[in-house]
Design a protein around this nucleic acid. Structure first.
Lengths: 195, 195
DNA sequence: TGGTACATGTAACATGTTACATGATTAG
DNA sequence: CTAATCATGTAACATGTTACATGTACCA
C-alpha cells in the first residue's frame, strides 16, 4: 500500500474551505476564520500568508488583481477544490486540547495556593466573558445549520467550563492569604533569582 | 521593561512538575503524563526525550544511574525547582482547542452528506468510549483533590461533547444513502427514488 | 529462539509563534 | 500633515509530528 499521503493540513484545508465562497485576501481569511472557526481552531496571519503562498506554488489557488489598500485576493482553482475534496475524505483526527491552567492545577500542590487561586479567578472571568459573547453571537446568526452546530459546540463547551469552575472546591479556588502556611513560604517577589 | 522572559515552556514545566515526586525516566514521564494530564495536554516520547536532554543541558535535571532495561532516570535539581516555580508565576495562557471534525462540519455544505455523517458517527462513538473510560477512572482515584478537579474537567468536557452530538440536527448527522441527491451523486439505490 | 513489549533516542520535517519591516488608507 | 489602523509579508525560532534505528528483557 502506497501510504494514504497527506494532501493538505487542516489549516490549509480550512482556507480552501473559505475560498469556496469566492476570492478573499489573507486578511479576510484571518478575520473570517476568527469569527467562524475561532472557537475550535486558530490560525495567525503569518500562517495564513505562508499557507497561501505555498498553495499558490502548488496551483491550488491563484492570485487575483490587487484591490484597494493593496489587498491581494486569492482564488481557489479546480486543483484546489480537488485537494479540498480529498481532504474531506480523510477521517478527521481527534481533537487536541491544551489547557495550561489545568497543568497548574495538576501541580497545584507545588504552587502557592493564592497564586493558583489568582490564575483560576482570571480564567474564570475570561470564560464568563467568552460565554456571554458567544451567546450574543448565537442570537444573531440563526440561518446556517452548520454554523449553528459549531456555535452550539462553543456554547456547550463554555457552559461546561463555567460549571467546572463552579465545581472547584473552596480549598483550591478560595485560597486566601490567611492560611498560607500549607507550603510554599510566601516570598512575594519574583522567584529568588538563581540564574 | 526587560521583557518577562519566558523561562520554560508548558511541556517542560509539566515534566518538572512530575519530577517533583522523585526521579523518573522518560518512559515513566510519558506514561504518567498520559494518565494524569492526558485529557488536556499531550506530549510524545520524542518531545519528552528532547526536553529532558535540553533541561539536562541547562542543569534543571540530572541523569541518574541507569536502571533495569536501560531505563535512564532524571532527577530535578534545585535550579529545576526554581525554574518550575518561576513558571508557576506566569499567568497560564488561554487554552487552545483544535477540533478537525468541527472544521468538516463548518464546511459541511461542501462535503458529501453521508461522508460528513460517517465522520460524525465515528467521533461520536469515540467520545462515548472516552467518557466511559473516564468515568471508570474517576471512580478509582478519589484521593487527590487536584487530580479530582482535572478529572472532573475531562468528564464535564466529554459530557458536553456527547450532549452536543445529540443536539446535531438530523439533516447533518443522519444523512442516509436514500436522500443522497443533494450533491455527490450515487446510484444503485433501491427503486423508490424520492420525488 | 524468535516475537512482542519495553525503552531510549535521533533526524527530518511540518506547523505554530513572535518579532519585525513595509506600504496604503483613513480620520482627525 | 500625522497618527492610527489596515494589510501584506519575511525571518527566526519554538514546538509538535513522524519515521526510523538501536538495544533490553520477557515469555511462549
Amino acid at each position: 500500500m502506497p501510504k494514504p499521503k497527506k494532501a493538505l493540513n487542516a489549516t490549509a484545508a480550512s482556507l480552501l474551505g473559505f475560498l469556496h465562497e469566492g476570492p478573499m485576501s489573507g486578511w479576510d481569511l484571518v478575520e473570517t476564520a476568527q469569527l467562524v472557526i475561532g472557537n475550535f481552531w486558530s490560525l495567525t496571519p503569518s500562517q495564513v500568508y505562508r499557507e497561501l503562498a505555498a498553495m499558490a506554488e502548488k496551483g491550488l489557488v491563484t492570485r487575483e488583481e490587487k484591490g484597494a489598500r493593496d489587498r491581494q485576493p486569492y482564488r481557489i482553482t479546480d486543483a484546489g477544490r480537488a485537494a479540498f475534496a480529498e481532504w474531506t475524505a480523510e477521517e478527521p483526527s481527534p481533537e487536541t486540547i491544551r489547557f495550561p491552567l489545568l497543568l497548574s492545577i495538576s501541580f497545584g500542590r507545588h504552587l502557592a495556593p493564592e497564586r493558583l487561586a489568582t490564575h483560576i479567578r482570571k480564567h474564570h472571568a475570561m470564560h464568563r466573558e467568552r460565554y456571554a459573547a458567544l451567546e450574543r453571537l448565537a442570537q444573531e446568526r440563526v440561518d446556517d445549520p452548520y454554523l449553528q452546530a459549531t456555535l452550539r459546540f462553543g456554547l456547550g463547551y463554555e457552559r461546561a467550563v463555567l460549571d467546572w469552575f463552579d465545581s472547584l472546591p473552596a480549598s483550591i479556588r478560595d485560597a486566601d492569604l490567611a492560611q498560607q502556611d500549607r507550603r510554599a513560604p510566601r516570598d512575594g517577589g519574583e522567584g529568588g533569582s538563581i540564574a
